[in-house]
Amino acid sequence: MNHFALLCSTLLLLALSYNLVAKTERLLPEQKIYTATTFGPDGRLWRILSAQKSISIDYSTDFGKSFSQPVRVNSTDMPIHAWDENPPTLAVDRTGRVYVLYFADDKQSSTSFFSHSDNGTQFSAPVKISSEANTWYHYQTEMLIDTANRVHFIWHDVRDRAEYKKQGDGDLSIYHVSARTGKIINLPTDQRIAKNICSCCRTAMAEDVDGSLVILARYVYPGNIRDHGLLKLSPDGKTSEPWRVTFDDWEIEGCPAHGPALSIGANGRYHMVWFTQGEKRSGIFYAWSDDQGKTLSSPTQVGDQDKLPGRADVLALDKQVALAWKVFDGTQTRVEAMYSTDGGLHWSKPQVVAETATQSAHPALITDGKQIFLSWNSMDTGFRLIPIRQSDDDSNQ
């Protein structure tokens, strides 16, 4: 058997055996499919549990086969608000401190709340992220803990809507705030860092090897063109001018509600995946950049167009890179994945790694620093953690 055939067989066996990897009972009626997971420095897998009026955290020491007793984050009931492009977010820093971001209805619908814990046993009183949370609607908040021990938040905010009404060619703005992590976290006043953002497409964020924060978003360009651009926040807080990186020319009077994904490898290579139905390209596409996004590789189409691929995620671990996305055949939703061991230059054949006939969350890729996993939640089987990998002897086609 050649190397490529062995790779495909390995992925197929993983797909067939995913039920044995991490399987929970069917979700209860009050539970939501929208979750988040991440590994801590000690190898524990942390998870957010969303219910109708509460957010809880638990962890697993056996890669999702079993979980600890959940710890509630919000002590007071509140209507938890989440949807596909607006899920909760979870992070664990190098000291094991746990950070939770979630959305709940308050004075404004879907206000983002933040809480943290030294060890996941007791959480701080949740606080609102936006300085205008009681006045202006905001959503799709992203959270990132950088290597300098700062917590960053970016979100879509409608407070500038009067400006966009005058322009007639944009939707809303991205706002940012950051603070030093610790037992007490005081958030300063937030600042606008981008405008003319497509309103319902979730924005992606990653840290570059130089400590900069890199943001990949779908912008609204003149003529209602919905393509993607990058911008950078330097470690000293300076914001670059955004620049366009995709040129698919998707003209649409409305938001596709289909955001991009971004991962930056230890060698500084940017890995991007996005969805488009543009005049020049249609479907999911992947590209990489070795010059901090100034130029991209020729976009590679991901998935079979006849299977309606979408909701792709990407994750780089050194030269290992994984892609995962959803497909739908009219009855079953499946997650397909493919893998690269040379930084995205060559890829394995796509394989089905999970499926459901019920409602499911978008696929998310996470890593424990050794291998890459698919983290996925569906109504019928609950949470699943599925390794996406190959043996050291396998190679790409």
Rank of each mutant, 00 (worst) to 15 (best):
S17A: 14
Q320R: 13
V273S: 05
A354Y: 05
D291N: 14
N377F: 07
A337P: 07
G283E: 02
A312T: 07
C200N: 03
I386Y: 08
T35R: 06
L187R: 07
V127L: 11
R389W: 04
Q320H: 13
G330T: 07
A162V: 12
S340M: 09
P260E: 05
A357T: 15
L323S: 07
D304V: 09
M272P: 04
I366M: 00
S115M: 06
A15T: 08
P299C: 09
G43S: 00
H152N: 13
L101G: 13
V273I: 14
M205K: 02
C8K: 15
K107M: 09
L6P: 07
N224L: 13
V151E: 00
E163I: 00
V21G: 09
W46F: 14
E30I: 02
D342R: 15
G254V: 02
M205Y: 06
M272W: 03
R389V: 08
G96W: 05
L49Q: 14
P126N: 12
G223N: 11
S124T: 14
A206P: 07
D58L: 12
F373Q: 01
R384V: 00
S297G: 03
L101H: 07
S212N: 09
V98F: 04
P41Y: 02
I264G: 09
H156I: 08
R94W: 01
Q52C: 11
H362S: 11
N2F: 10
D84W: 09
W347D: 01
S50Q: 13
N119Q: 11
G64D: 08
S199W: 03
Y219L: 13
D58V: 12
H362G: 06
D160G: 05
P299D: 12
A206I: 03
W46A: 05
H152C: 04
D58Y: 12
L216T: 03
F103D: 13
D105N: 15
A133W: 01
A162S: 10
Y221T: 04
D77C: 09
W243E: 05
R44K: 14
R281M: 00
G254N: 06
T141H: 09
P70L: 10
Q52S: 15
V273C: 01
P126R: 13
D249I: 10
P70T: 05
S17M: 12
S348W: 11
Y339T: 08
I129K: 04
I184Q: 14
A312D: 00
A91V: 00
F67K: 09
R180N: 08
W325S: 06
P79F: 06
E25V: 02
L27N: 01
K166E: 02
E279F: 10
P88H: 10
S68T: 09
W274M: 04
W347A: 06
P126F: 05
S240Q: 04
T381C: 11
A5N: 15
R269I: 10
A257I: 13
N224C: 08
T381I: 06
L13V: 12
L144N: 02
T246M: 03
K307A: 15
R334N: 08
S263Y: 13
T189S: 14
S117C: 06
L12D: 12
W274P: 02
Q108D: 03
T76V: 15
E241A: 12
S234A: 14
